[in-house]
């Protein structure tokens, strides 16, 4: 049977990508971030996940506003590395899990009535790849886990509500548990924390909000899921609204908190929180 073995909430700051590619992880400005992932990587080695479901948003690399899905699930054997406008990063393509994707599609649509957009082609980019870089360092031509992208509209309002994202996570948990084959799954909720990248409020952060969000995500996630986009954007910056994707992770990963870390050197609160089971 399928099993959710863990959940990870983490930021997907794009500048992490080139730091990995140029091997700058030990520089003093970056070391605190990468050090925080040492215990997470050890924990993941113990959990031995087969598949990571990555709840993320595309940043105009492969999805466009001509037709913009609210929730989009990858249903493919493999996912190539996208070009976001700065060139394609030198990373191996990501191997998917087609059977699990098909099962999730049927279960989420028939049983749980989440009408996802199903994508046979997705080129993945920093929203997906930075969390993979942080948690699952790649080998020369492969990643240590299979992965399935679940893309959420957190860019063009109206966005799905935080509660809808939470319920999608609950449905995802039930769908994974109904999978007939033995597969160990980690769910990653990516994005945030506080940041604003446009207007005169560029660079705005709010550590107090971010810590509060991680507290509530652990202790009272269902209550946290009633938070409005307005409140997140007012208190943590317009782009912080990505945090609704952490609620999908928490809806799927219901166990005890393991690790927690926070680092905010430049313009984004880089949070990290893990839950087991």
């Amino acid at each position: 049977m399928g099993k959710i073995v863990g959940g990870i909430g983490l930021s997907h700051v794009p500048s992490v990508g080139p730091v990995v590619d140029r091997n700058r992880m030990h520089e003093p400005a970056w070391k605190p971030l990468f050090d925080a992932y040492v215990p997470v990587r050890e924990w993941l080695q113990r959990l031995k996940p087969d598949v990571a479901i990555v709840v993320y948003n595309d940043h105009a690399a492969d999805f466009s506003f001509d037709k913009y899905p609210t929730f989009a699930l990858g249903v493919a054997e493999r996912y190539p590395i996208g070009d976001e406008g700065f060139g394609t990063r030198p990373l191996p393509e990501v191997k998917g899990d087609l059977d699990l994707s098909i099962h999730l599609s049927e279960s989420l649509i028939y049983e749980h009535e989440f009408d996802l957009t199903l994508c046979q082609e997705i080129a993945v980019e920093h929203g997906f790849l930075v969390p993979m870089n942080l948690c699952f360092p790649h080998m020369k031509d492969a990643w240590p886990v299979r992965a399935i992208p679940l893309q959420v509209n957190v860019v063009q309002h109206p966005l799905p509500t935080a509660r809808r994202c939470w319920r999608l996570g609950q449905a995802l948990r039930a769908a994974v548990q109904a999978y007939p084959a033995d597969v160990r799954v980690v769910v990653m909720g990516t994005g945030g924390m506080s940041h604003q990248l446009q207007g005169k409020r560029f660079g705005f952060m709010n550590e107090k909000f971010d810590q509060w969000f991680m507290d509530r995500l652990e202790a009272a996630p269902e209550e946290l899921a009633t938070i409005t986009h307005q409140k997140i954007m007012e208190e943590a910056g317009a782009e912080a609204v990505e945090l609704i994707m952490w609620l999908t992770m928490r809806g799927a990963a219901r166990g005890k908190r393991v690790d927690r870390h926070y680092y905010a050197p430049m313009t984004t609160g880089m949070g990290l929180v893990t839950f087991e089971g």
Binding site: H157, T228, H229, E234, A238
Partner: peptide, 20 residues
């Protein structure tokens, strides 16, 4: 849950359908 964006936020643009 009702409306999610209920007022303007100082020095911030909310990227909605009209702006898009």
């Amino acid at each position: 849950m009702g409306r999610q964006v209920t007022g303007s936020i100082p020095d911030t643009s909310v990227f909605d359908l009209r702006l898009s």
